Amino acid sequence: MAIDLYVWPTPNGYKVSIALEEMGLPYTVHAVNIGAGDQFKPDFLKISPNNRMPAIVDSDGPGGKPLSLFESGAILIYLAEKTGKFRPQDPATWYTHLQWLMWQMGGVGPMFGQAGHFMFYAPEKIQYGIDRYGAEAKRLMKVANERLAASAYLGGDEYGIADMATFPWLRLHERYGIETAEFPHVKRWIDAIAARPAVQRGLELLKENVRPAGQSLTDAERENMFGKKR
């Protein structure tokens, strides 16, 4: 039975589409247009009460019962546990993967997201925000580069869910004025992951709805994405 994926083509959305492709799980895509305010619809809030995508509903969850999940990190852990794929059996190795997944969830996603907000979407240019979050994005690239100098992937020798979570963000480094010439180990890692067929399929997610880089938001889109609703 297919997993229902509620999503929009953003870095957080790609995390889950890539994982589903890598793990060979069938899924049905339900577009959640965050610019149009779909994330506030009552039916979606029953699945994702924090009004954020991605979210999933697995009709064949634990014990054969339906399970809904929000938060991309929780979804990735669940899918790895469900399939036994990209889930190292050695506890120390698994916790290393989880450590770097949490690094992405608590650091890369929020900091790159704030950098993007101030650089591209804020209604007025606030240089402090641009400098603050741009510098933090670059610092996180340095952390990744140092890790990947010592390890093929973030979790260790094997590609895993921490890489699936982080790749959709770091592959966009040029948008943030970050050149990989300064971070050669990150470049090697990005190139290796981008070449994976499942990753390429995952990045096809709702491709007709991908916002062109630099395209301005309408007032309604800005309110839906960054306003005071809910």
Rank of each mutant, 00 (worst) to 15 (best):
F86M: 15
K65L: 10
G63L: 00
R87Y: 10
A74K: 13
T96G: 08
I47P: 14
D60K: 14
N51A: 15
Y78S: 00
E71V: 00
D60R: 10
E71L: 01
T93A: 14
P88I: 12
V57W: 08
V57M: 06
M111D: 12
S68F: 01
H97E: 14
M53V: 14
G84S: 04
P66R: 09
F86V: 11
D58E: 07
G109S: 14
G113M: 08
Q99N: 07
E81F: 06
G64P: 04
N50G: 08
T96F: 08
S48P: 12
L79K: 11
G84E: 03
F70E: 00
G61F: 07
G106V: 13
A74V: 11
S48R: 09
L69G: 00
H97L: 08
G61I: 06
D90C: 07
P62T: 11
F70Y: 06
A92I: 08
F86R: 09
I56C: 04
N50F: 08
L76R: 06
D90T: 07
E81Y: 09
Y78T: 11
L45T: 13
K85L: 13
R52V: 05
M102E: 09
A80M: 00
G113K: 11
E81C: 08
K46Q: 15
R52D: 02
L98W: 04
D60W: 02
Q89L: 05
D90N: 15
K85Y: 05
F112N: 05
K65P: 07
V108A: 12
D60I: 03
K82N: 06
L79M: 09
K65H: 13
R87D: 11
D58P: 00
K46H: 14
I75T: 01
R87M: 10
I77Q: 11
P54L: 06
N51Q: 08
K85E: 12
K65S: 14
P49N: 01
W103K: 05
Q99R: 10
I47W: 11
G109V: 06
L45R: 14
S59H: 15
L69P: 00
G107M: 13
F86Y: 11
E81I: 07
V57F: 07
G84W: 05
I75Q: 01
A55G: 00
F44R: 00
W103R: 05
P54G: 06
P66Q: 08
M111T: 13
P62D: 11
M111L: 15
K82G: 02
I56F: 02
G84L: 04
Q99K: 13
P62S: 10
L69W: 03
G109M: 03
N51W: 03
K85P: 01
